[in-house]
Design a binder for these strands. Structure first.
Lengths: 197, 197
DNA sequence: GATTTTTTTGAACGAATGTTCAAGTAGCGT
DNA sequence: ACGCTACTTGAACATTCGTTCAAAAAAATC
């Protein structure tokens, strides 16, 4: 089986995402990748370049999947804010324990690496920024739909949410206390819809 | 120079903390440790056991230093809440960029490692829990001093703060936007002292 | 069906990993 | 002064690391 047919790129990327997400960039060896992807080193290097390149591809894949979920499940919804809260609830609390890590993969990578991996780090920064911008989009839509006060600073709200999500998911990994996080999500949306004056 | 005299344990631990904090547990090699500590492998292993043992010692050292700072600078203060806010401000924003990482070392380790390093992970969980308990102590003191409403749930407040700090410091590493974090600290203490009813 | 083109294979590379240990060395008690 | 003890040293160990590449294999082209 060679030439053209080869492997299913989407499937392979998904498997690589799972492994990197669980083990981290440094913590994942290329041999573990080889067995997880069921590919030999030559093929992996021909297809993706290096370990760092594959990881970058995986990060893009991860962020794009998140963005698509936001578009299909939230932006195309008559009540974007409610759909957003629901999605966040599911994404953060993750009823089925099917995820490789409680942490957001971007936040996990941000925490793991120092400036000696500046290329990956700046990609993570870019992607986190992109996600934050989509959060702002959602809030803008919610404002248009009349579910957020007209005076809401959507950019500030997006920043706050980004900070909160990273905190929630870290706290979840630390304590596994879903109740606290559930309350915090509700509280944040409460404050957004009914701010202090 | 042998027998008894040996090395300065506090100094060596501090240097190990710096390196581990910057590079992470997996990302720090024992050779890097050897040159950072100016010790040969045999000495390190005789003094601390293994890389994992040294890292555990470092984590305890880190958490204890934090607790001591909390005791001396906050608990022994006539206005514990104000001193606490000041300490948090300095600790999170870190005017001199002298720290190995913007992240909290406990949060960084929590993010880095998966369950295959269960011993270290459970130590991190314990230490985060201890720190959170000290936060609650501070809030209790602030309540006694009349700087927090009598009805304040100090445990819940400590959890919220723990979540926030992790979020803030991660966000700081991602964006370097000190302004946003400064505002968020102020806002959180605002909400603590003047909650909604 | 022979040739070309592209991919896969898996052994192999040098470097780096965490760790060990025999040998060396310096301060202690006597 | 001299062994005794305790610590340090640095070479060496067996693995594992990320990566390469010649050879094999399989589709595509003619």
């Amino acid at each position: 089986m060679a030439n053209v047919s080869k492997f299913d790129r989407a499937d392979v990327l998904e498997k690589a995402t799972q492994l990197f997400w669980e083990r981290g960039y440094i913590g994942t060896s290329t041999r573990e990748l080889q067995s997880a992807l069921d590919m030999r080193p030559g093929s992996i290097y021909a297809a993706f370049g290096s370990k760092a390149d594959l990881f970058a591809t995986v990060l893009n894949h991860y962020a794009q999947a998140l963005t698509e979920q936001l578009n299909t499940q939230v932006m195309n919804n008559a009540n974007a804010l409610q759909a957003f809260q629901q999605l966040l609830h599911d994404l953060v609390l993750c009823p089925n324990n099917t995820r490789p890590s409680e942490m957001c993969m971007l936040a996990k990578t941000l925490a793991e690496l120092d400036e000696s991996h500046s290329e990956i780090l700046s990609l993570v920064r870019t992607l986190l920024n992109q996600v934050e911008a989509r959060f702002a989009d959602v809030f803008t839509k919610a404002k248009e739909q009349g579910n957020l006060p007209a005076g809401t600073d959507v950019v500030a709200a997006a920043k706050t949410l980004q900070i909160s999500i990273i905190g929630w998911r870290s706290y979840l990994k630390a304590t596994r206390d879903t109740q606290v996080v559930e309350q915090q999500i509700e509280q944040l949306f409460q404050q957004l819809t009914h701010p202090i004056h």
